[in-house]
Design a protein around this nucleic acid. Structure first.
Lengths: 199, 199
DNA sequence: TACCTTTGCTAACATCGTTAGGTATTTTGA
DNA sequence: TCAAAATACCTAACGATGTTAGCAAAGGTA
């Protein structure tokens, strides 16, 4: 039954093609101007075809955001494989997180609903825990040597995530402010440094 | 010429009325469902009247966000009047900032473009400096006693702002996560405490 | 009275997400 | 092999959006 398999492959191709085209449009023109009709145009099919593969526009955006999480997770996992010292690992994670955000601002904005349509009512994304899992793991390794309760560790993870996310999202919304661009990076480095010392 | 003055007053009334009605709609139904036509309906005028007072929808949202900044600034100024010890003042500012965000989530989301339409391409808001000005002032007072460069102070301000904003926006997007609601507050308190000690 | 500005409206345009319904084409089952 | 069922794909529409053109009535001014 090679024929049906080819059909399934074609169907999946269509799906990934829609996502790829959507991402391209977003990178070129921003979230605000992404429309179903533009996607249909770009894949050279009529509009309803898109609804054979996705329930609605939000679904497409959601799926794209999952791609973003997967991409981020891959880089964090690479750190984990390559770096054994937990403090160095934590620093590398922070750096990777930062770089991911500014190399893929479209992804980051979508993943965390920055300046996005309908992010408030969207599904809760379990992938938000990517950060908690990886950064958390590194922090826990550092902390186990010391005398810290689980709660305290959890707080540290949360605080750490917040600084990073705060710095990134504040910088993203003031992107015209070039002065801040070097400063933000330094603030992050300093904060990470201070954090690790205080663990 | 009392007549023309009355007319001007009426015009301003219309303007503030539009803003008030828009805010009400937003609080009731969320940003996503705010529309010019709904506003027109609520003020009992036809749609084009709104465009006599605002250039476009984004302009209305922008103006609303300025109201948010003013509201926040007022509470910070009240702190400044009432609290003299800079460390206590800084703690109070953080608390006020936090409370403002969760008492007025619509405002906060609009001010910082969380899950909002077209926030990316909007004007740069000089009012973003509200935080820098007030929190910065408190931090500087604490720091002047010590040996710190201006740059270091600036970094501290930025880092402090980032933790707060990060905690708030992360909590806002995971609003279903009730467990986090108490934790976040504690993380903030702890972080503020740690920050002040490290200044 | 004649003119002009203001005030407000109706109606339209273009775009959006989404869906109903139809027409070929292909696959399936007897 | 031939009818039936499923698939692939389209056109056309619905309702809602932001925005604007153009017109009518009202009020002030000369």
């Amino acid at each position: 039954m090679g024929i049906t398999e080819r059909k399934i492959r074609q169907k999946e191709n269509m799906r990934t093609n829609i996502l790829a085209v959507a991402l391209r449009l977003v990178k070129d023109e921003g979230w605000q101007s992404l429309s179903i009709r533009k996607i249909a145009d770009a894949i050279e099919y009529s509009v309803p075809v898109i609804y054979d593969h996705f329930a609605n526009k939000e679904d497409i955006l959601y799926e794209l955001s999952l791609d973003g999480f997967r991409l981020l997770e891959r880089t964090l996992e690479k750190n984990k494989r390559n770096i054994r010292d937990p403090r160095e690992l934590l620093k590398a994670h922070a750096e990777s997180y930062w770089n991911f955000a500014f190399k893929n601002p479209e992804y980051y904005q979508l993943m965390y609903g920055l300046g996005m349509p309908c992010s408030g009512s969207g599904k809760v994304k379990p992938e938000l825990n990517v950060f908690r899992n990886h950064i958390g793991e590194a922090i826990e390794k550092i902390v186990t040597d010391k005398k810290s309760t689980d709660d305290e560790t959890c707080f540290k993870i949360h605080a750490f995530w917040s600084v990073l996310h705060g710095l990134i999202s504040i910088m993203m919304m003031r992107c015209s402010d070039i002065d801040d661009s070097t400063m933000n990076k330094k603030v992050m480095d300093d904060t990470v440094e201070a954090f690790i010392k205080n663990l």
